[in-house]
């Protein structure tokens, strides 16, 4: 089955990102295709590379990045939500005159159309959040 996932909550504050990660991993293990993971609302904070969680805890952002490398996942951060919350890649830094970037390897910033497209193209769109 072709599945897309939407993550609506930030890391650590909320379990949604953990649940989505475990769901994506399990779906891949079962042989399903993950068309896209779309990060919205505070979910965009799953894509910063500047977090330093305690060493005895999971690293939520790094874990997504590693999974993306392993399975060539398309991890998309919503540009409008990212601009509000300061998730920046080279293009955004250039466009908005920012002096730094913080996007994690394996993520990309794009528009909300990517979410709608994921809904249209996938057999299921699974939303994680409250």
């Amino acid at each position: 089955m072709k599945i897309s996932v939407q993550v609506n909550e930030g890391p650590y504050q909320h379990q949604a990102s953990d649940s989505a990660y475990n769901f994506v991993k399990a779906a891949l293990e079962k042989g399903h295709e993950i068309f896209r993971v779309f990060f919205y609302h505070d979910g965009v904070n799953n894509g910063t590379r500047l977090a330093t969680p305690p060493q005895d805890d999971r690293n939520v952002q790094q874990r997504w990045s590693d999974l993306s490398k392993e399975h060539e996942l398309d991890l998309v951060i919503c540009v409008a939500a990212a601009q509000r919350r300061g998730i920046v890649d080279d293009g955004e830094a250039e466009r908005n005159g920012k002096d730094a970037t913080n996007i994690m390897d394996g993520f990309r910033i794009s528009g909300l159309g990517q979410l709608i497209e994921a809904g249209v193209q996938s057999d299921r769109l699974v939303v994680f959040g409250d």
Binding site: Y40, H41, A81, L112, G113, L115, I116, V120
Partner: peptide
Amino acid sequence: VYALESLEVVLIGAAF
């Protein structure tokens, strides 16, 4: 911010 950002999805989605 959920309500505002939901409406943004609806407006963008309308183009599809």
